[in-house]
Design a protein around this nucleic acid. Structure first.
Lengths: 227, 227
DNA sequence: GAGATAATGTGTAAATTACACACAAAATAA
DNA sequence: TTATTTTGTGTGTAATTTACACATTATCTC
């Protein structure tokens, strides 16, 4: 008779003002009560693992995401949970924190967006799950136009620039970057808007979901080498 | 109390004579007794999932692989196993079938390499696991020099060509392909050998593991668009 | 309101890489 | 000895990537 428990955890990244954030909860019970950990919990017997992450995420943080990508299954360390053998399937989510209300719900004491650069010590092996998520995020940004999940519906081009600079942790050539991104024709030009602060006003754009799906269907690759 | 069982399955691809093969076992017990399925089984309470696949693979087929890559975790269909809730972590392995002795062991009635194009009906949802593996294989071949796991230690250049043609299912320009591959300097030239059949003899090559690791450490990308 | 400062928007030339393309050389088979 | 099979090789063109600098439009300050 097997005694392995199956759990799910969500690595949810947010972006704002040139910085990445991670959604964490302060755990209510268990060996890491009062520690910050990733939202997650046990899978129920009759629910899909995909549904399980969504449910746990909502129960603990009130956040509802419709897209979570399977990241990796952590089950090589037999003692990753002090209470017994637990294998966890980690999922990756990306959002604009501005779109969400977060609120500690039933199963968490507190919910918080932490600056990724300034994470507290996380319980269990959750730091390594975050590392894996970040690795995936950094890889994805080179071949998928993920920026748009992390930004608001409408955004200035400079915000997209900042996002790329932040995730890749490099400077980028604004002219070449713009040329590259615009060449995909994924952006709808919404016209000039008064900019947030000082300086010349800039154009706002919206991500063209339809065009994106069209290109994906054609097997198009969004390679962005130069960032 | 949770009643989910955790299993592992191995998608092991082989390559020979311009064709891909899949390693399957004929199941001894259970609802799919006498059906062909992927090697795999339940994870033990005190073993890592990585060890579990290796063990199951060996127990059922006598095949020992030192590298298996985690592929995907299948647990969204609650009824994928008629006996109850089973979530399975699938792994991907690549080998030259010539290197291995396969032999039905303790837990299998029979072991066999099937032509991938001519698979029998597989038990459970194993066909979709295979599909996922194939998808990964096809993606990997564009950014990792995986060919070498699938070939013998020493190989003619034309064998590598054939492998690429087979996996991508496309013709390739021999001159450009050779130029590209040789530019990585991953191949050690072993000199001219009498070719297998008729025709001009060709050079044999060996994969330079050391150089590969060096390049990976530098963050080099092995992009092979043109195949 | 003039000048400093901040942010956005834009084009061109050089270098590199991808792609298309054809024939000679060395072996075996007939 | 001739035909067939397989391997090995180079060059020109197109496309893409990269490097690089300044004018425009706004706000802030004095």
């Amino acid at each position: 008779m097997q005694h392995i428990k199956l759990a799910v955890d969500a690595v949810v990244f947010g972006y704002q003002n040139e910085a990445l954030y991670l959604l964490c909860v302060k755990q209510k019970y268990g060996p890491f009560a009062n520690s910050w950990v990733l939202p997650g919990g046990l899978v129920k017997d009759n629910e899909s693992i995909q549904d399980a992450v969504k449910r746990e995420l909502e129960e603990e943080t009130s956040v509802e995401l419709d897209y979570l990508e399977q990241l990796y299954t952590f089950g090589d360390d037999v003692e990753r949970d002090p209470r017994g053998r637990v294998v966890t399937v980690a999922y990756l989510g990306l959002v604009d924190p501005g779109r969400l209300h977060i609120q500690a719900d039933t199963d968490a004491l507190e919910v918080k967006w932490f600056l990724l650069k300034d994470l507290p010590e996380l319980g269990y092996d959750h730091q390594s799950i975050v590392d894996k998520g970040l690795e995936r995020l950094r890889a994805k940004i080179h071949y998928e136009p993920i920026g748009f999940d992390l930004l608001g519906k409408e955004f200035f081009f400079s915000e997209l620039e900042g996002l790329y600079r932040t995730i890749t942790n490099r400077e980028l050539d604004r002219r070449n970057f713009r040329k590259k991104i615009l060449s995909f024709e994924l952006l709808e030009d919404l016209g000039v808007f008064p900019s947030n602060g000082r300086g010349r006003p800039g154009k706002k754009y919206r991500f063209r979901e339809d065009r994106y799906k069209e290109l994906v269907a054609k097997g198009f690759h969004f390679e962005i080498k130069y960032v």
